[in-house]
Every structure is written in structure tokens, then in C-alpha cells.
Design a binder for these strands. Structure first.
Lengths: 209, 209
DNA sequence: CCGGAGACTTAGAATTACTAAGTCTGCAGC
DNA sequence: GCTGCAGACTTAGTAATTCTAAGTCTCCGG
């Protein structure tokens, strides 16, 4: 029962690239650079010993093997998604209800979170609050506010301010800290806080800080 | 079409641990330490927000969610294996025919490669040869011999000797260098060459050296 | 003959996974 | 009741992988 499998990372890269027939577009879907996708796909092709794409100067074509492989891989990802949602529905399919302190809300774009398609996919709505208790009662899934805490039993990610601006705290249940919804929201907050995005990094702390 | 997926590494750890109901046994199947499996499973549980195991002092039990998840995950791995074998049959299902130079053979255990279950799973048989040409004619899948080369168009992994012992060369087609068969064989050779395994590392070179 | 788009390559940085060593808990044998 | 053992857990440090950034190449269109 020892499976010999290519790594999921390389398969995701392949699947996205094959759907778009473009490393660049795939990269933006996956939130990485085109070089990363290129490397992952090459790694997959090496491990299989089979070329999946024909590289053209302006895009990609699937080889016969790639053409055969794509639908199977897509189905595997769908099955995996279904299986995962069956046991952890909230995490995987539900959009977040976001609590935002008014002070922070004032610094977000007018139409947040509807300014970005990606964010709309991850956020159901938001309520103005700074009450951590609403996390425990499940009224909200995450909370964004200026400092505070400690947040025993909750996960905290600190979003530093640029210059003298105050840091923000992103708080949620520990199981939600690494899910895609949290990541999308954090990424957007980071972007908003810094037009020099290279210089600011969120600081992630363990639960209970 | 953006899937939200747990990482394959964590799923493999879960699947093996769930089948064996033991991190330790799973670890030995996967060729890592029990701590690594424990960490991976915990990471998966965190990302799902659901406990998959109940930890007992002397073993594991699946939770209801784990019980539900296991068969789906097993099936996903099987489907993935099938899909992969359909486009790259040789790499994924066939056992290797190994070429070994007599000089090296003399330094292997009497019953190599039948001394280890893992190795038996990856090696069909071996022939005494040092002829690189047999790789190109597909009579063998990999070749183990003392130095030599260059091996244009072939992949080479160098297995250093301890002390003054001569290094060995593991040569195969580029597409085969990273497959599980090669890995299993290399791992075993490394182990044989050093009872102080921490001090020796195979050196992997690009094709064409 | 340029300029742009997209794929490729590479070094180095960032992230992730693994090991090693030590802790804790309960069972089995004395 | 001790003592030894087995297996899971934790943590710090290391190893391996993945990603980015920056630069290259090739072809197409103007």
C-alpha cells in the first residue's frame, strides 16, 4: 500500500497551467510567480519522465500525455475537495464573516471587501465590532482591530503599520489561521497597509498570545 | 476553479497513520521519523479545524471524521496512482532492473536486494555489468559502479565512500533519477556504505556529467 | 528593426519538513 | 508498588524544498 506519487504542489502547478495553457496566468491564480510554476511543472515532468507541455515562445500546448493527464488530475482535486468539505465544511467552503473595528474600517477602501474578486470569494460580510467574544460565540470567523489581547486559545497574526502607523491584529480560532480565507484577507490587508509591499511582513504568533 | 486543498504531504502522513493506527509504523513506511508524522498530521488537523485521531498513550484511534476521511483519501491516492501510471507506466509501476559492477556487488550484503522489504518492492533483479550502453538499450534501468563517466544525457548520483573507500556512481536516465525506485536503492546504498549515516551524503549532479 | 510577451535560468531568500533528543503517560512484569 | 518499555508529544536546530527577483532568449507585430 505504498503509493508512488508525484507531489501535490507540482500537480497543482500542472493543473492550473494546463487549464490556462499559460504559466503566467496559472501563476497569478496560484498566487506565485511564473518562474515558480515553471519550476514545479518541470519537476513533475522529470519525476514522470514524460513531457506534459510543448513550450512555444508565446504560450503552451499540451502533449498527448498532458492531454490525458489533465482530466484525471482535475477529478482528483475535485474528489479531494469534496472529501475534505465532507468532514470540515466550514473551513473549506464557507465564506468568512469578518469583524472589523471601526478604527480599522476607516482605513480600508470605501467598498471593502468588494474591491477584489479574490476577496469576495472568501468574505461573506463584515460587522463592525471589536469584541473578541464574538469569535467564541461563532458570530464572526475572524476579527481585525488595533492591538489588544491577550487572546488565549485564539490565533493572532500581527500586521505591522508602515512608519508610525499602529499595528493591526488579525484574530481567529487556531484552526482557521491557515485556511485560504484567512490568507486572502491577510494578503489584502498587507497590500493595503503598504504601497512598498516588500518591506512589511505579517508576524504570525502561536495560539495563546 | 481554485481548489482549497490540504497539502499532499500531510495527507500521506494521515493516510499511513490511519491505516496502521500508529505514527511509528506509518513513519517507517514513509521512511521518516515518528515525530515528522506527528507534526504533519497535526498540521492537517489544524488546517481542517477537525481532530482526526484520538491519541492514546499506546496508540491511536480515528475520530468519526477521521473514519470518514480515510477511505476517500485512500481512493484519491489510488486514482492518482492510476492516472499517473496511465501516462508514465514504467516509472511508477515497474520494478528496476539494476546493473551492478562486480566490484561493487562484492561489497553488498550476500542476499542483496532481498534483505529489505522496501528494496524488494523496487527492484526486480540485477545483472552483473558495468556497461553504460545497457541503459540506453533499456536492458537495465540503473547502473551502480565505481567512478567512470562522463555520462552524457544520463543522470548521475555520486555515493561517497567513508574514509579512503572509493566513491560509487549511480547512473540512470534523467527521468528516472527522482523516482521512488532510485530513491529506495540510493537510500539503501547510502546505509550500507556508512554505519555513521549522518556523515555521508549522496551528491546529485545534473544530467550530462 | 524595435518593443513586448511569455517562457527559461539562476542565485539567494524564505518557507517547510525532518531529525534528534528529551518529556510524559500508562501498561506489563516482577 | 516499582521499573522498564512503548508510543505519542515537544522543541530547537538543520536540511530540503519552494519561491522570488533579476536577467536571458525567442518570436511576433508594428
Amino acid at each position: 500500500m505504498t503509493y508512488r506519487l508525484p507531489s501535490l504542489n507540482t500537480l497543482r502547478a500542472f493543473e492550473a497551467a494546463a487549464r490556462h495553457l499559460s504559466f503566467k496566468t496559472a501563476a497569478s491564480e496560484l498566487g506565485v510567480t511564473a518562474g515558480a510554476v515553471s519550476q514545479q511543472v518541470k519537476k513533475l515532468e522529470n519525476s514522470l519522465g514524460v513531457a506534459l507541455f510543448r513550450r512555444l515562445p508565446h504560450g503552451l500546448l499540451l502533449t498527448r500525455e498532458g492531454e490525458t493527464y489533465l482530466p484525471s488530475i482535475t477529478k482528483v482535486f475535485e474528489d479531494l475537495t469534496d472529501a475534505t468539505e465532507a468532514i470540515a465544511p466550514r473551513i473549506n467552503s464557507k465564506k468568512f464573516r469578518v469583524g472589523i473595528c471601526s478604527q480599522v474600517k476607516a482605513m480600508l477602501p470605501e467598498n471593502w471587501p468588494n474591491h477584489s474578486e479574490n476577496l469576495r470569494n472568501h468574505v461573506r460580510d463584515w460587522v463592525e465590532t471589536r469584541d473578541v467574544e464574538k469569535l467564541r460565540t461563532d458570530e464572526i470567523d475572524c476579527l481585525i482591530r488595533p492591538g489588544g489581547g491577550p487572546y488565549a486559545e485564539l490565533a493572532l497574526v500581527i500586521i505591522p503599520g508602515t512608519g508610525s502607523a499602529e499595528a493591526w491584529h488579525f484574530v481567529c480560532k487556531p484552526g482557521l489561521a491557515d485556511c485560504s480565507q484567512s490568507k486572502a484577507i491577510l494578503q489584502d490587508l498587507m497590500r493595503i497597509r503598504s504601497e512598498d509591499p516588500g518591506s512589511v511582513h505579517a508576524v504570525r504568533l502561536s495560539p495563546g498570545n
